[in-house]
Amino acid sequence: MAVTASMVKELREMTGAGMMDCKKALNETNGDMDAAVEFLRKNGQAKAEKKAGRIAAEGIVMAEVKDDKVAAIVEVNSETDFVAKNAEFQGFVKAVVEQAMETEAADMDAFMAENWKEDTSKTVKDALTEKISVIGENLSIRRFEKVVSDGCVVAYIHGGGRIGVLVEADTDVVNDEIKTCLKNVAMQVAAMSPKYVSREEVSEEYMEHEKEILLAQAKKENEESNKPKPDNIIEKMIVGRLNKELKEICLLDQVYVQDGDLTVAKYVEKVAKETGANLSVKKFVRFETGEGLEKKNEDFAAEVAAQMGN
């Protein structure tokens, strides 16, 4: 029986095995799909299918920077922390981040479909499937981001890959002082987990939504109070609480962890003045391993903050 491309595709989707492995299995079994699945299972090439339902919530974040201008960060997950510390797994993650450094992909689907840099006969997805078979756990390339900068970009990795951060800055000076400043800002992002660089990034929709919540809270407090406040005082309370929230979620408004007398914005201004640079933080990327997945909760942000306080 002639083996068609659609048959190979179907077998790949059923087993997660590589394209050439599927083609060989179908040829060996004269196109019998069930027999081909058995063939792949017997050869250890369909392991991924059996493990795909298991949650991969451990793993590591890894980042790479080239010439202070190009950077990539990836999160690759495993099922257990034991495997996350395994040299085979870490070598694979390093290959993934090197792939991300050169990628033109805009999303995970395109990234997974790219030719694997280390063996262009495979896709990234094929390489992942093969690594699952070798390691024997479900693995997942969860996310990546590539940053190409006209200024400077730095990376910071905390806790052996528990948290990873990229910080990009617009700057006309790139030297050790500037890079140290940006590394300190990256540590701040790791510790304090801001949502935005500055207030300018916060949407009106978000602001209105928060105001509604704060208004409901204030009205409830007023109803339960022995001394209800007039509407104009409630309005001021809402403005004050919103400002407090913005100081927590906007990086530049945050109190700088390494010097409580400064905000992050003031710290960056101070370094800019000392170095004679036009320096401003443009963006950040923060990945925390297993963030949002089912896993044991650990307060990595507090761990970073404690480390910075030493």
Rank of each mutant, 00 (worst) to 15 (best):
A191E: 00
A95V: 01
F89T: 09
K146E: 09
S121R: 03
V97W: 01
I132D: 03
E104D: 11
A100T: 08
T103Q: 09
M101G: 05
R162P: 08
E177F: 01
I163S: 03
M192L: 13
I132Q: 04
S149H: 03
A110T: 13
L166I: 06
V124M: 12
D150H: 08
M112F: 05
E102I: 02
S149P: 06
K131T: 14
K195R: 13
E130Y: 14
S193G: 07
V124W: 08
A186M: 11
K183E: 15
V147D: 13
V93E: 01
V124F: 11
A186L: 10
M108S: 07
Q188G: 08
V93N: 00
A106S: 12
C181I: 02
Q188S: 08
R162T: 05
K179L: 04
D150E: 15
V153Q: 11
D107I: 12
S193M: 04
N184A: 03
A191Q: 07
E130V: 14
Y196W: 12
K146I: 05
K125L: 14
T171H: 04
V97L: 09
G160N: 11
K122E: 10
E177L: 04
R143H: 08
N184R: 10
K179E: 08
E130T: 13
C181D: 01
L128W: 13
E98T: 10
L182S: 00
V93K: 00
E88W: 01
V97P: 01
S121Y: 00
D172A: 03
T120L: 14
R142Q: 05
V173W: 02
S140M: 11
Y196D: 11
T103I: 10
A127Q: 14
I157Y: 01
F92Y: 12
I132V: 15
K117P: 07
N184G: 04
S149D: 10
A186Y: 13
Q99W: 12
A186G: 00
G161Y: 09
L182P: 01
D172F: 06
Q90I: 05
D119Y: 13
A95E: 02
M187T: 08
V96A: 06
G136R: 13
D150S: 14
A169Y: 06
I157V: 15
K122S: 11
L166F: 05
I157F: 07
F92S: 03
A155P: 01
V189A: 04
Q99N: 09
M187I: 09
E145F: 06
D172I: 07
I141N: 08
D150V: 12
H158S: 06
V148S: 13
V167F: 05
T129Y: 08
E104T: 12
Q90D: 03
S121P: 11
C181Q: 04
A191Y: 02
C152I: 08
